[in-house]
Amino acid sequence: MTEAPATTTAPTITTPQAGSGGSDFAQLSRRIAAEGLLDRRPGYYAARIALVLAAFVGGWYALFALGDTWWQLGLAAAMSLVFAQVALLSHDLAHRQVFTRRLPSEIGGRIAANLLMGMSYGWWMNKHTRHHANPNHEERDPDVSPDLVVWSKRQAREAGGLARFIGRRQAYLFVPLLLLEGLNLSFNSFRALRSPTMKRPLLEGVLLVVHFVAYFGLIFAALPAGKAIAFFAVHQALLGVYLGCVFAPNHKGMLMVTPEMKLDFLRRQVLTSRNVRGGAVVDSVMGGLNYQVEHHLFPSMPTPALGRAARITREFCAEQGIPYYEVGLLRSYREIFAHLHRTGEPIRSGE
């Protein structure tokens, strides 16, 4: 396996040629469509939704069945996994992987995100759409905005305030920061209700309030105050870590796109994305997002089709001389931490 592409400089790539077959992406799309990989998979999603809902309801039942015991913290950890699976399901709904029509996708997405998880579907959808349009772009991708962490040396040189303080030792602080990511998602969800880009702020706000009233009501009804607070802390902390460990390997440590770079759609998506190997277990834990290259190229592709699409895309990229990168899960984390340490160097050296 080759080394990961450079993160701050333009890669050496072949110039895209648009011949009689159309653009490179058009040619790949035809191969993917010919295999039926964009067709809906209603049976798969019916089973997956049923399993996630069963785990969700079962978790709350177990909260009362266990009663007043510190074993509830183990349940809190398990429920963080369930909530993350709800989040991954809302992600698929948002991309219309489950339904082809917008209305059922939005209804399902708001139920999963706002009502069950406590995160604004509208706020996340807006942010995620901008990410897909410009992955790892230093100025346009909100997921690499240098609010707390710097993702390129250019950002490090321009950083100030808290980002500059954290950037010095961000490789060591990244996981501790993820402990707060669950709370951060909820905070930004409520804050976004005032945004003019929010389509249905009243509906989203009501669903969020219902979620948190029910969430805290159930916890404090089942447990004494001390254990209820501990349950909340463990649940939210591990939820943030889990989500971060699912989403970070997808792009972090890959090519950072600057305004000077000119990349066509295919290369923009492939060169900024990392696939993670690992088989059925990793596929389930990461909700199919370990096939990040294919997900970015074909966002509406159902999860079970991504593995086959990866083989086709890998072969096509080899034919076109386009670097296609995939590693194991542990290797992806090593690359992320190495990237974080490397990009913080300008702050540590005083550049």
Score class of each variant (00 low, 15 high):
residue 284 S to C: 09
residue 275 N to Q: 13
residue 10 A to C: 09
residue 142 P to L: 09
residue 288 G to T: 06
residue 278 G to L: 10
residue 40 R to C: 00
residue 182 G to E: 08
residue 2 T to F: 09
residue 309 A to G: 06
residue 308 R to Y: 03
residue 246 V to N: 08
residue 332 S to M: 01
residue 296 H to P: 08
residue 5 P to H: 02
residue 172 Y to C: 12
residue 36 G to L: 12
residue 309 A to V: 04
residue 271 L to N: 00
residue 86 V to T: 14
residue 264 D to P: 04
residue 13 I to D: 12
residue 21 G to F: 07
residue 110 R to M: 13
residue 239 L to D: 02
residue 265 F to N: 05
residue 72 Q to G: 06
residue 23 S to G: 10
residue 38 L to Q: 12
residue 177 L to F: 11
residue 243 L to V: 08
residue 9 T to G: 09
residue 337 F to G: 12
residue 226 G to N: 15
residue 294 E to W: 01
residue 58 G to S: 13
residue 325 Y to N: 05
residue 109 G to L: 05
residue 13 I to N: 13
residue 306 L to N: 01
residue 223 L to G: 13
residue 25 F to R: 08
residue 162 L to M: 13
residue 342 R to E: 09
residue 82 V to W: 13
residue 112 A to D: 03
residue 17 Q to K: 09
residue 44 Y to L: 11
residue 74 G to P: 09
residue 9 T to D: 11
residue 55 A to Q: 05
residue 22 G to M: 05
residue 80 S to P: 10
residue 215 Y to E: 10
residue 213 V to A: 15
residue 299 P to Q: 11
residue 59 G to H: 07
residue 168 R to D: 03
residue 324 Y to M: 11
residue 69 T to I: 05
residue 158 E to M: 10
residue 203 L to N: 02
residue 197 T to Y: 13
residue 27 Q to L: 06
residue 40 R to D: 10
residue 180 L to H: 00
residue 168 R to V: 00
residue 129 T to M: 03
residue 12 T to I: 14
residue 4 A to Q: 04
residue 350 G to V: 04
residue 209 V to G: 04
residue 86 V to M: 14
residue 146 P to E: 08
residue 160 G to T: 11
residue 128 H to Q: 10
residue 52 V to N: 14
residue 1 M to I: 10
residue 249 P to C: 07
residue 259 P to W: 12
residue 143 D to S: 03
residue 287 G to I: 09
residue 301 M to P: 02
residue 146 P to N: 07
residue 326 E to W: 10
residue 303 T to S: 13
residue 342 R to C: 01
residue 172 Y to F: 15
residue 118 G to S: 09
residue 254 M to N: 02
residue 154 R to D: 07
residue 94 A to I: 03
residue 334 R to E: 13
residue 181 E to M: 12
residue 95 H to P: 06
residue 272 T to G: 05
residue 13 I to A: 12
residue 262 K to P: 02
residue 235 H to R: 06
residue 253 G to F: 02
residue 61 Y to P: 00
